[in-house]
Amino acid sequence: MIAAVGLVLGIVAGLIYEPTVPTWLQPYLPIAVVAALDAVFGGMRALLDGIFDDKVFVVSFVANVVVAALVVYLGDQLGVGAQLSTGVVVVLGIRIFSNAAAIRRHLFSA
């Protein structure tokens, strides 16, 4: 509940303040956001599975974001940043879909 409130608060704050994304962060922010989304869906699924744990959620969230950013950074250094970003997004997208499917099965039994 508090997490949902925090999400809404964050969105509202972002819309209100409209900060400019610093240049060094620009390639990583979208990937980080997708990774965090994956973590959140995973957390939802764990919640419905009855195995949700605050610590696991926090660690997976932070680790997801950091690893995603790291992979993109590495890709940029290797000259395959665009392709690697696409790869990361694809993998995270697949995970989000599978998590969403599990959530759907819990909520709608289908």
Binding site: G6, L9, G10, G14, P19, V21, P30, V40, G43, D54
Partner: peptide, 25 residues
Amino acid sequence: ATRGQLVAAVLCAALGFGLAVQVRS
């Protein structure tokens, strides 16, 4: 209001913030 819940809320807020900023930019 456990500490874990609060941290999760902060992280979710960060996610929402980043989402909104990225979409807007």
